[in-house]
Amino acid sequence: MTSHSDVIDEARKATDTSPPLATLGGEKKRSIEQITLLLFITVPFLALVAAVPLAWGWGVSWLDVGLLVFFYYLGCHGITIGFHRYFTHGSFKAKRPLRIALAIMGSLAVEGPLVRWVADHRKHHKFSDAEGDPHSPWKYGETVPALLKGLWWAHIGWMFDEEQTSQEKYAPDLVKDPALRAISRQFVLWTALSLLLPALIGGLVTMSWWGAFTAFFWGSLVRVALLHHVTWSINSICHAVGKRPFKSRDRSGNVWWLAVLSCGESWHNLHHADPTSARHGVMRGQLDSSARFIRIFERLGWAYDVRWPSRSRIDSRRNDADGGSRRRKEAAEAA
């Protein structure tokens, strides 16, 4: 029997003659898209491989290093604060100027359109390390060969999968927002801006084509490759190794040596134990620059209703063994 909602859906499909939106797919990736993706991955990676011998040959200026660091952390925080904690998980609410700024900052990281990124990540959390997860390193099993294959899949391989996450299903809130949908569709524009700005700055500061070239090499290609692999390591490494002091239904772990480069995202175990938390590094000594910036935004009045984790909330998510030892330590200190 056909329901009333089914009839409405069929009528809408029949009367909707507008062209499909570039970031609203959910069926299959086209070959041209896969080729473009391959170029975006391989070209910056080749630059990263060539960086050390080239630096040995003709050096790298402080301007190049400054551009690399600035644009790296601009895009990284755009991903961690914007795409991830805000758009995907709603860890806080943002006033519209900040909302737009975070969408653009994340787009400058060259990790894909906003709507697609969010849809993929929400699906990842729904099926984390189980069947349906777009990028679990445990996809092929738990033997060493299977895990090695799975690590490659979780790190890069999954992006070439023909099937796409339905963005209308997993990110309907973003699909309905005209401004965010436009930013998502303009991904090529933000990519071009991200790659050309360092070269433009380098050329203008040095007033030379060579300065523009070296700035492009370090501030664009090497920077994008480094950020890509750090972000992908959260999908692969942080779901294969690391400490797990908190209860989660998957194999997410904390990997301390990625914390600074990932802007706090590698404290991944707490994130999967409490996905909406605005802070991922909740234990002593766990650096989380993304949480610091969210705190600044909150104090400036740009962000509000921030989901800061309380001590009781953190303790409720601890593994029994870890929580028990902590309570014994606190009791001993109190005595």
Score class of each variant (00 low, 15 high):
1 M>C: 10
2 T>V: 14
13 K>T: 06
15 T>F: 05
17 T>E: 03
19 P>N: 05
21 L>A: 08
24 L>C: 12
30 R>P: 05
32 I>W: 13
36 T>I: 12
39 L>N: 09
39 L>I: 15
42 T>Q: 12
43 V>T: 11
43 V>M: 08
44 P>V: 13
45 F>D: 03
46 L>T: 07
51 A>I: 06
54 L>E: 11
65 V>F: 03
66 G>Y: 02
68 L>Y: 15
68 L>H: 13
69 V>F: 09
69 V>W: 10
69 V>L: 14
70 F>K: 14
70 F>M: 12
74 L>F: 07
80 T>E: 04
83 F>R: 07
83 F>N: 07
86 Y>K: 06
86 Y>W: 08
95 K>R: 14
97 P>T: 08
107 S>A: 15
113 P>R: 12
118 V>T: 11
119 A>S: 13
122 R>L: 01
124 H>L: 12
126 K>M: 15
129 D>R: 11
130 A>Y: 05
139 K>W: 03
145 P>R: 15
145 P>G: 11
146 A>Y: 02
148 L>H: 05
151 L>H: 04
152 W>C: 03
161 D>K: 14
166 S>K: 00
169 K>P: 00
170 Y>V: 00
172 P>G: 08
177 D>Q: 08
177 D>R: 11
182 A>L: 14
183 I>M: 03
183 I>D: 02
186 Q>V: 02
188 V>E: 06
189 L>G: 04
191 T>I: 07
195 L>Q: 10
197 L>Q: 03
198 P>W: 02
199 A>M: 06
201 I>W: 09
212 A>Y: 04
216 F>H: 12
218 W>N: 12
219 G>C: 09
219 G>A: 12
223 R>Y: 04
229 H>G: 10
233 S>P: 01
233 S>T: 13
235 N>V: 00
243 K>R: 11
245 P>L: 04
245 P>E: 04
245 P>M: 05
250 D>V: 03
253 G>A: 00
257 W>E: 01
264 G>E: 02
267 W>I: 05
268 H>T: 03
269 N>I: 08
272 H>D: 04
272 H>R: 07
274 D>A: 11
277 S>T: 15
280 H>I: 03
299 R>K: 15
300 L>D: 01
304 Y>F: 10
310 S>Q: 12
311 R>G: 05
323 G>Y: 05
323 G>P: 00
327 R>V: 10
329 K>R: 13
334 A>F: 13
